[in-house]
């Protein structure tokens, strides 16, 4: 029995997910997790989507993208445009609304994926720091363009987005994202992406189309970032260009590297730990210590430096067993 259990990691992952969902739902309906804590959990989940998708680009394929929130912005604005301006969805949470919302999310993801393909092009010629700075530039250009499109509010932001991101939808989207990325990483395509990371020249020599895989990493990573952006916009009911600047991108990058670059388990864990730390524990701790809230980010950045110095490989550099599919 134990052996069967160990040999069915996908089943285990699903059971863990369902158990976590039921637990959170019970705590929430029992009033132990109030709306505030649920918002934080929702943000944690969205960070899981953003971080794992960035990890595909940076960790698995070994590229270096720092403009991830640019993709999220495209997703947020495309999805928001459809639900708010085109379909004018009500806030009723009915089945048809939810279905249309899912369609809008996917459209947002596709929009982000198209942009991802564009940004992936320079990746064919550039490496490391150079690629980093170009993706950063692209992220800023996306933000500038949104800032200047009056149809989606320009600097005012896209307003009046219906609150369609329920906990259930966000949770399901997160689990689906993780399952797909996990499957992908351990498929032959994922192996090819890892070979690009380890040695692109050798990969080329054994007949792997490295060009294709670099672009695909950006396309898929951007797609899921777009989904994350769409969910965020429908959680806080607006999308604003200033939410998607390079500082926001850095925060996602920090989650990936503290968790352990290349490790999906690390990204998932760090998304929870860091978000809860930053939004919940640190403010509480500071209040207890009698310090002003402004010290929150001082401590946060100090922690980041310390983790990087003493554990540069991140907190969870290797995958947990249930994150590795059967036969691996």
């Amino acid at each position: 029995m134990k052996k069967v259990w160990r040999n069915l990691p996908t089943l285990r992952l699903l059971i863990y997910a369902v158990a976590l969902y039921i637990l959170l739902m019970l705590l929430s309906s029992g009033g132990i997790l109030n709306d505030y804590l649920m918002i934080i959990i929702n943000i944690c989940l969205i960070y899981v989507i953003l971080a794992t998708s960035l990890n595909l680009i940076n960790g698995i394929t070994g590229l270096f993208s720092v403009g991830h929130m640019g993709f999220a912005a495209v997703g947020a604005y495309v999805a928001g445009t459809f639900t708010t301006l085109v379909w004018k969805l009500p806030n009723d949470g009915s089945v048809s609304t939810t279905l249309l919302f899912i369609v809008a999310l996917v459209l947002g993801g596709i929009g982000a994926a198209i942009v991802g393909a564009l940004i992936g092009m320079p990746a064919l010629r550039l490496k490391g720091d150079y690629l980093a700075i170009v993706t950063l530039g692209f992220g800023e250009i996306i933000r500038t363009i949104i800032n200047n499109i009056d149809a989606v509010g320009g600097p005012r932001g896209l307003l009046g987005i219906p609150a369609l991101s329920s906990f259930t939808i966000i949770f399901v989207a997160t689990v689906v994202t993780v399952l797909i990325l996990r499957y992908l990483v351990y498929s032959s395509h994922g192996r090819a992406m890892i070979s690009v990371r380890e040695d692109a020249t050798a990969a080329d020599l054994v007949g792997i189309n490295t060009t294709k895989y670099k672009v695909w990493a950006f396309v898929i990573g951007a797609f899921f970032a777009g989904i994350g952006g769409g969910l965020l916009a429908h959680l806080i009911q607006l999308a604003h260009p200033t939410q998607y600047g390079f500082y926001a991108s850095f925060l996602v990058l920090i989650v990936v590297y503290i968790g352990g670059v290349g490790s999906m388990t690390g990204s998932i864990l760090a998304a929870f730990v860091l978000t809860i730390l930053e939004k919940y524990l640190l403010p509480m701790l500071l209040q207890w210590a009698g310090l002003g809230v402004e010290w929150r980010m001082v401590i946060y950045s100090l922690l980041l430096i310390i983790v990087m110095i003493y554990r540069p490989e991140g907190l969870m550099p290797r995958e947990a067993k249930f994150m590795i599919p059967e036969d691996h």
Binding site: G128, L302, L304
Partner: peptide
């Protein structure tokens, strides 16, 4: 971090940058 992966140093640089900004602001 001199002989560690270069990207950890880069992330550390982001951390140092954030630290200085927020520290001075605090």
């Amino acid at each position: 971090l001199r002989y560690k992966p270069r990207l950890s140093a880069l992330i550390t640089a982001v951390g140092v940058s954030m630290f200085l900004e927020y520290f001075f602001a605090s």
